[in-house]
Design a protein around this nucleic acid. Structure first.
Lengths: 198, 198
DNA sequence: TTGACAATAGTACGACCGTTCGTATTATTT
DNA sequence: AAATAATACGAACGGTCGTACTATTGTCAA
């Protein structure tokens, strides 16, 4: 790993933290450079434009999300355990203190839902990917016989993802101490309702 | 209504539209003034600071939300019809084209969930108000015997609100044509599960 | 050790930010 | 109609934004 790659990684780590609190637009090259003790121009040279920096931050965020939420869940046995792990890890990710300001991708998706362009395209792609992961895991649980065969997996995914999003609201903004319990209860309820009668 | 009050209202209307697409931070006095054909300083004098402008925008947004979502729902007979109307109106509000960029309060709550200050305080208050409205209507439906007496109304509100939030994601960013159906199905499912067996 | 190139710093730019000020214009009241 | 308050304007302030160029430093293979 060359020196350039190392600094680039350090930049992205710091940028990710800043983005999680200030958003992709609030992320600023000047203060980012200050916080890293380097010059604006030196930092800038790594990316070429702010937009490319934003894209890199998003990709780094998706990597982190995949490492924290998706991959550990995929390590679970297929079927219900995997679906549950997905939601549980997602809830834990929202509460994670690694990123001081919560999931940057969720913030970005509201920030950019009316600003067409390459960044919006990237966010849409990432969200669709995540949706596919949830749907895939759910469909697998149906195949395994854990969930009803007539379950609408898209509806299921919509509700599960909505709960994870709503949790952010209650936990991060409202700081409601019951938020975590509500989210877990809701997710387990969703899964239970999809179960096969036995 | 004096002239000042009239322009102030016109400013807030335009500001609300801009905020819904660009966020409270992206809202800019200069371009707002341009769009209204008036000078920066003339506009500025109406509010005294950008922060007070932001607060005024949020309050205007809450008024609009109350007029569009809450009041029509309260006009419904108490109990289940009112609860359902609340969610239906909320879904319609998200799809509304009056505000080009979706609910500004939802956007602001993610934008400011890590920026303490008077604006965050105001957003929290607004969200708590809305939560109270949902909980109140739900509790009333329990009293009327429409919903189970052992229903956890807070849990119910959390799930309903989460669904409305998740709907924004699917509808506005991902532009999924099934989003509306998913949201309606989910909300009706939530309500049905809370029903009294009869 | 030197030469080539990657990495960083330095400086400058035009544009826009929120804000202030003095002044002109328009409404409202007396 | 005169007096006063409300409203709006234009110009300017100090800052920060992203970006462009040039110069300097650091790294690492030959």
């Amino acid at each position: 790993m060359s020196k350039g790659e190392r600094t680039r990684a350090a930049i992205l780590d710091q940028a990710l933290a800043m983005t999680s609190t200030d958003g992709l637009t609030g992320l600023t090259i000047g203060t980012l450079a200050d916080r890293l003790g380097m010059s604006k121009s030196g930092l800038f040279a790594h990316f070429g434009s702010k937009e490319q920096l934003q894209a890199a931050v998003l990709e780094r965020a998706a990597e982190l999300f995949a490492d924290t939420v998706v991959r550990p869940a995929l390590a679970q046995p297929r079927g219900l355990p995997r679906v549950l792990a997905l939601f549980e890890n997602w809830i834990a990710w929202t509460m994670d203190t690694v990123l001081p300001g919560g999931c940057p991708i969720q913030a970005a998706s509201i920030e950019f839902d009316d600003r067409p362009g390459p960044i919006q395209d990237l966010i849409v792609k990432q969200q669709e990917d995540m949706r596919r992961v949830v749907i895939g895991a759910t469909r697998r649980a149906v195949e395994e016989g854990h969930l009803r065969s007539d379950l609408d997996v898209e509806q299921f995914a919509f509700e599960g993802i909505s709960l994870c999003y709503g949790f952010t609201q209650s936990y991060r903004l409202l700081k409601n101490p019951k938020a975590e319990m509500w989210a877990r209860t809701a997710v387990h309820g969703l899964v239970d309702r999809g179960r096969n009668r036995q």
